[in-house]
Amino acid sequence: MSDVAAHRLDPEAAEPSARAALRGPDGPGRDMIGPAVKYIVLSLAAFVSVFPFFWMLVGTTNSSYDIVRGKAWFGDQLLVNLGNLIEQVDLPRVLFNSFYIAIISTVATLLVSSLAGYAFEIFRHKWRERIFAALLLMLSIPFAALMVPLFVMMASAGLINTYSAIILPTIANIFIIFYFRQATKAFPHELRDAAKIDGLKEWQIFLRVYMPVMRSTYAAATIIVFTLTWNNYLWPLIVLQTNDMKTMVLTISSLNSAYTPDFGVIMVATVITTLPTLIIFFLLQRLFVQGMLGSVK
């Protein structure tokens, strides 16, 4: 800002500014080269970004040999690959595991974390800001530092290879608490006051007034948490040990780590793994992005 101001007062700056005024905003230098470079850069970036998706689709129709040899056009192996996948993997079971873990995690996380986020914003207490600051500080604790003791804890509680071991540590999501506290700043206090005059208890206000009013916040948070848990890898890799408990993500990873991985089969499984989050993204793009940005506002 101050640089701009300095620039304006700088007498030497007046000269190029006069030239710019003469040339006008659509001077030749800007219009000819600038946009061309811009569109080349953007098109290249868009192409590189989208290409692996195309590669994945093409891969589902090719044999593993063709894929690793770089064949980048559609073949006729789709049904063979799909058949092999169904033979090698108990697809309904694995899909059930993925959906079950993601859905239960999402519902529990939203409930616990939105309650906390709401309370941190609505109720005043002398420790409120201190506790909240401590929570935010914990956002920077890397999971790598927790996984060893968490694993030992789960082992001694007999929870290895269970859904609970995956779900429990994810429920109190500090980021989501923070997100709900931020969103609650826009929640009209008059609604709460009116509900209190009507004699509603605090939990009734939360359930019947807050939750319906904040539904777009809930929708955005649902997308974040669902995507996060659907795609979770390291912790399930540690805790889930038998094939019948594995998620989609773990399944593609273990297909991939075979001595000679069958990439045709893997591509079909990868499409299935990617599809739910991709569908959510295209259906609810605005909410998806809003949820992601929630923390910066």
Partner: peptide, 8 residues
Amino acid sequence: SLVAYSIL
């Protein structure tokens, strides 16, 4: 997912 794109 990180695993899916890694495999790609």
